[in-house]
């Protein structure tokens, strides 16, 4: 199907996750990297429910575009910090989108109490892959643990994004973003997490 003449020189990245996963920090890292690279950037965040286990969504739009938000079907990249939320956000994507999804589930309360069922990971993977073939499906928590801290799984996912080559941002801009965004004592561990994600991506996302 022919899509209308979209701004080819802008990249729209949609972030989704669960309160406490550090999605807003990841959003900020991408924004700071774009700023360091001298590329126009605008971001949108929704605050308020982050601490209480709800879904947290944000967006970064890089390049020649004005809107900070992303309509359905227009996200070029989906950064999903949780596999169920990856599927929930699928309507944001189009067939050529890149999806980077963490496979470590956070079980919603309705599932924990037995009122509903968490879909099988393989089923989630299948439903997403059927619509969007460009999918990086990884256990970011495990990669972060190997890099030194589970808490840095958000930075692992940013590393995967950086390594995907979809963004016109050099390594030095990412380094600058890490330094500008994080407290000095956690830059080191996050750099390792970033590199782990970056390497994963460069190896073809496997």
């Amino acid at each position: 199907m022919a899509r209308e003449t979209r701004a080819f020189d802008a990249v729209r990245i949609f972030f989704t996750g669960v309160g406490g996963q550090g999605t807003l920090l990841a959003t900020r890292l991408v924004g700071e990297a774009a700023l360091a690279e001298g590329i126009s950037v605008t971001m949108s965040e929704i605050h308020g429910m982050a601490q209480r286990g709800g879904v947290v969504e944000s967006s970064v739009v890089i390049g020649n575009a004005f809107s900070p938000t992303i309509p359905d079907g227009e996200a070029d990249i989906l950064m999903a910090f949780e596999p169920l939320e990856a599927l929930r956000a699928l309507p944001k994507c189009h067939a050529q989108s890149l999806i980077i999804a963490n496979t470590a589930p956070i079980v919603p309360f309705s599932v924990a109490t037995g009122q509903s069922t968490y879909p099988e990971l393989a089923a989630l993977h299948g439903l997403i892959k059927e619509k969007v073939s460009n999918l990086m499906w990884l256990d970011a928590v495990e990669l972060a643990r190997k890099a030194g801290s589970e808490r840095a799984s958000n930075t692992v996912l940013v590393g995967v994004l950086a390594g995907s080559g979809r963004l016109p941002l050099g390594k030095s801009s990412w380094e600058e973003a890490l330094k500008r965004t994080l407290a000095p004592r956690i830059v080191g561990i996050n750099r390792q997490a970033f590199e782990a994600g970056y390497a994963f991506s460069r190896a073809g996302g496997v």
Binding site: R52, G73, L84, L87, L90, P91, P108, F109, V111, T117
Partner: peptide
């Protein structure tokens, strides 16, 4: 104007704040 195709998804467990 051709609206982009919007993928449909099955009913999923909700995740309300708690």
């Amino acid at each position: 104007y051709q609206s982009p195709e919007v993928f449909s998804i099955p009913q999923l467990p909700q995740r309300p704040p708690n």
